[in-house]
Each structure stands twice: as C-alpha cells, then as structure tokens.
Amino acid sequence: MGTAGRRIGNITREILRLGIAPTDLYEVNPVFCRMLLDRHLDVTVFDEPAEKLAASGPQHVDAVVSGLPLLSMTASQQQAIVSAAFSRLGPDGVHIQFTYGLFSPLRRGVAESLGLEFTRSPRVWRNVPPAVVYVYRRKRN
C-alpha cells in the first residue's frame, strides 16, 4: 500500500483513538473507501463525490475531516463540496481541512459566501510534507 494508504490509516486510527465509533465514520473518496474497508470493516462508506454528501450522506454529522486538495480546485468546486458538508453539519459543526499550502485552502470568496470563519494550527513540521490544519465554522453573530 502506498503512502496515501498509510496516511489515511494514521488519520483514521487517531480519530478512532479519540473515541469516535467506527460506525460514526464516513468516507466519500472511492480510492480510500476500499482501503478503509480493508482496515476497518465497520466504517460506513459512500462511494460518491464529496459534493454529493448532501444528497446521499448521513443526515447529521458533528464534524467533517477532509484531506481533499481544495487548493487545486475551482471556486465552484470548493463551494459545492464545502456547502454540501455544512448542509449536514449542525450549528456548532466544524469542517476540518488538512493542507500543505501556505494559505487557507478555501478561497476567501467561498468562505465569505458560506458565512465561514476559520482557525489555523501551527505548521506540523514533522509531517512530510509539512501540514497545517484549518478548522472552519459558521460565523457567530
């Protein structure tokens, strides 16, 4: 298995270690669906594009953890994916995004149109390549 398989395994392992039940995990990336099912038989998978989460995904989730390459996507693709995620998140729900870029992976205009704000972790230099975690939330009035 390549590095992507090991990386998704590490992220999933940490999520499970934090106490999230495997039956409460959902995967939408078709490549990772198979890898997750091989390692964690009780993980629920949706073998559809992330922007279809609103139509076929779970009715309510507390958080979305994403490693999608948002930096390489158009504004309309970002809008579709993040909007779908927030359609399933409750008022306090968060969209957690891993990135290797220097700036927010979500375009400013997309974040503004969705009414989102974010916090950012320090760069994780021990990760190869170094990564940053952004947590997007709905703005509070």
Rank of each mutant, 00 (worst) to 15 (best):
T23M: 01
A111Q: 11
L68T: 10
I96V: 15
G109T: 12
V110Q: 08
R17A: 07
V43K: 10
S72G: 02
S104G: 12
C33V: 14
R108F: 05
R13Q: 11
Y100E: 06
D92Q: 13
A21G: 00
G67K: 02
R17D: 01
F32E: 07
V31D: 14
E27S: 07
V64D: 06
H60V: 13
S87R: 13
V28E: 00
F46N: 05
R107H: 13
A80E: 10
A85H: 04
G9W: 02
V31M: 14
A55I: 03
Y100H: 11
L106G: 10
P69S: 07
S56R: 11
F46T: 01
Q79R: 12
A85Y: 04
G57A: 06
T12Q: 04
A80Q: 13
A111R: 14
A21K: 11
Y26K: 00
A85S: 14
R17P: 00
A75F: 03
S56H: 09
V28R: 00
T12F: 05
L53K: 11
L37K: 15
V31F: 15
A63S: 04
G9S: 07
I96D: 00
E51Y: 14
K52L: 14
T74E: 11
S72E: 12
E51F: 14
P91E: 10
R34W: 02
N29D: 15
F86N: 05
G101Y: 04
L41E: 12
L37S: 04
S104A: 15
G67W: 04
L102N: 10
N10W: 10
R7T: 12
R13Y: 03
Q79L: 14
A85Q: 08
V94K: 03
F46W: 13
C33K: 13
D62R: 07
I96Q: 01
I15K: 01
R108P: 04
I11M: 14
V43A: 06
V45N: 02
A55W: 00
P105H: 10
L68I: 15
C33Q: 12
R7L: 15
L16A: 08
N10H: 06
A80N: 07
E27T: 10
Q79C: 01
V45Y: 06
M73I: 00
D24R: 12
I81Y: 00
V65R: 05
E112M: 11
A80W: 01
M35P: 00
A80R: 11
H60T: 13
Q59K: 12
V45P: 03
L71P: 05
